[in-house]
Nucleic acid binder design. Structure first.
Lengths: 228, 228
DNA sequence: GCAAAAGTGTTTGGGATACACCCATGC
DNA sequence: GCATGGGTGTATCCCAAACACTTTTGC
């Protein structure tokens, strides 16, 4: 039993980070993957991730890795980032035990600049074969996203500042992967003190203009009631 | 920017684990603390925790540390254990950057055998001054527990196999720290497909016997409906 | 018979669900 | 005037909340 308090032989596990980055394109929920350049799992699709060195917080490491591997600035291009879970059951590096802190990120129209264009978004329902335990990680992230969008204002991460109720409903439908009733959706959403009418409307399209709404708060927060 | 894929100078942060262990005694929610024997924060109360060496999963490390520091076998004495969050913003050891994976544990009538009896349970509303960021960690764990008990069968972690509705209500009240209406509580709980009447009753006390109930499943699982 | 806790029902209001038609615009 | 998406109301059901008295036992 190693413990640096009692002996000097303490060796830490390798610490890694991974990110599950979601956006919605053409009303489909997408997740960002990169093709691995090295072994193990060379040429298999995987979540973007890498090593976390001493002196970096996990989010700093995530930022550095995303810059380097997929050309993405997480603070400017993602609207929300949250820690998902820490996975420690899989030896992700054959050289030894690795512990992975995983973050979820949410944004829209994310621009990538990855080396050799090895990063791309995939529809979550049409994922390729994935390296490591990344299929499980994505499942977990999806479950969390689907729960959270139900009682928080997280949907704003996928939308421009002003949006129509139809586009908001499209977000919910893409995330939940099921159709919602238009009238009931609007009643529920407008009763939640989450969005407000901006007074502006869309224009220039061959149908009735739509009112434009905005979120009341840019903080990602709980907007629905508790249960007890 | 260190990365062992590109150079050999990778040094991992120190990895530590901490546990927030809850139980209910005399209808009060309690949390386990230990008095620190070393610097930093010597003689200050803190969550039990320690180092996670390479080759151990975080839960294995937690098990070893809890055995050693508070004489508690987490697998036999805790009914449920779940990962809470990974904290990496605080240098918990003056020698360098540390990342702490924190677990929550839930049980009842937990027996401790800590060296010099330096571990004890504290009422969560009467906590002493705490080392590191442990006050924040406990707040976070409490918030999670209060949420989770509302839509899962987690309450069973605090109860014997058979229990009365009054004792179940006492658990909810202790966790939520507020009184609940008896009739409404019973209606809600019995409508949830979470517990069942065992046909047995209490006896030998100076009042009407109470029916004994049991949980339908020993798996900690969601028992309430989703929102969309 | 009395102390102590167990057990039980009704009313009211609000949110969830199911469901179909008219409206405003561009062309 | 027609194609396209935007916008709206009602009836029903179920759950949440508020609220007080009777029952069963030990002593």
């Amino acid at each position: 039993m190693k413990d640096s308090l009692f002996n000097k032989e303490y060796i830490a596990p390798t610490l890694t980070i991974d990110m599950v980055i979601f956006q919605i394109t053409n009303n489909r929920l997408n997740v960002l993957l990169t093709k691995r350049a090295q072994r193990p799992f060379k040429s298999t699709w995987a979540l973007p991730g890498g090593y976390n060195a001493a002196g970096q917080t996990t989010l700093e490491a995530a930022d550095a890795i995303m810059h380097r591997k997929v050309g993405l600035d997480i603070h400017s291009q993602l609207v929300h980032i949250e820690q998902l879970y820490t996975f420690d059951t899989v030896a992700r590096d054959p050289r030894g035990h690795a512990v992975a802190v995983v973050y979820s990120g949410y944004g829209r129209e994310i621009e990538l600049d990855s080396p050799n264009q090895t990063a791309q978004f995939f529809d979550v329902s049409e994922l390729p074969k994935l390296a490591f335990d990344h299929a499980k990680i994505i499942d977990y992230a999806l479950q969390r996203l689907r729960n959270r969008i139900g009682y928080t204002n997280l949907a704003q991460a996928f939308l421009p500042k002003q949006f129509t109720l139809t586009s908001l409903q499209d977000i919910y439908q893409a995330v939940l992967d099921k159709p919602l009733d238009k009238r009931n959706f609007r009643k529920r959403i407008t009763s939640l003190d989450m969005i407000h009418d901006t007074g502006r409307t869309t224009a220039g399209r061959a149908h009735r203009p739509a009112k434009l709404y905005a979120f009341n708060s840019t903080n990602i927060a709980v907007v629905d009631a508790e249960r007890f």
